[in-house]
Design a protein around this nucleic acid. Sequence first.
DNA 1: ACCGACCGTTCGTCTTGACGAACGAAGTTC
DNA 2: GAACTTCGTTCGTCAAGACGAACGGTCGGT
Lengths: 186, 186
Amino acid sequence: MRGSETEAIETISIALRHHRERAGISLSELAKRAGVAKSTLSQLESGEGNPGVETLWALAVALDVPFSRLVELPTPHTRVIRAGQAPKIRAEHAGFAAGLLSACPAGASRDIYEIALEAGEIRRAEPHQPGTVEHLIVVSGSMRGGPADEPAELEPGDYTTFSGAVPHLYQAVGGPTTAVLLMEHS
Amino acid sequence: MRGSETEAIETISIALRHHRERAGISLSELAKRAGVAKSTLSQLESGEGNPGVETLWALAVALDVPFSRLVELPTPHTRVIRAGQAPKIRAEHAGFAAGLLSACPAGASRDIYEIALEAGEIRRAEPHQPGTVEHLIVVSGSMRGGPADEPAELEPGDYTTFSGAVPHLYQAVGGPTTAVLLMEHS
DNA sequence: ACCGACCGTTCGTCTTGACGAACGAAGTTC
DNA sequence: GAACTTCGTTCGTCAAGACGAACGGTCGGT
């Protein structure tokens, strides 16, 4: 959440509506569960006001989501960042550079894997549950990875992220390949 | 942040004091930078009140931390897994192998970075806030990484995890080095 | 048809969040 | 010494956050 103050309440209103609809309950029902006035929730979902943390906290608990999910928005689709092309997040000090590939608010569980593919090998994966996101970083060799209908071509140090909820694949191109795979479930 | 309402403001007061002290600025200076009254900040740092998101947002911006860092509290220790030595979590299919490096339940936020070090470069990092854990996977070159008093020697594909709440370092050994860094805050 | 339950929005009221001013303490400069 | 700046805390004031009540609309049951 690095936008203007107007965007703060806007983000909150979007998140509230989203999570409430996902839970399949009415505005009145959520307000009742959270112990918050209907008029207050109506206002917040309309993108008005400046709620206190206690109000937001009560709503997060009633929606069974981490607090930060109400104040920060997730970002879901296929993306590729080439080796060395990530946005620099620190002043580039001589000899040291760090680039941000991806950030994620609290709430998702995740597993880190190392994977290895022999020359020419192709591995197809079934769709995982909705909300699964994969982050792939190539360590050595060339490969294709991502959604089965449109995998990205990747070299060492390249990064891609894509929804794990669709058929996807990992394929060695040329010789053997190794990569780091981060799987996230929210 | 899954505690009671009392803990909400308590969490915020702890986080505010911590980040402000890390930034090395006074309460009056932070209040000025954030455009917030000194008395308001004094109250929040004392664990009193129910701040609006606009106030917290302004403070997060002034402290240059993500909003969620002010409302969620952050676990710790060093581990190294060599390339190819991670426990296999799937039946090893001919030509494809995947090993689990690390798993984490829901609750932590995280950032993925690519980092690059020139030959011989050493980068020292100050301790991050308590609860920060770092996961480092070497992509190319050799390096040392981890707690400053005991960094691990790492080759391509090697993995290490350590607490980011202590002084730590990343150092290229021999030639240039690249790695993937996952920083986690719970 | 009427009634009750539920919906989301609008309105008036009260409490508290956030403001600026004042305060005493500490440090620096002349 | 006095004057100034900065510190964090306390205090009085005002506006907005959050409350409950009222409203018009929709739906289902009798």
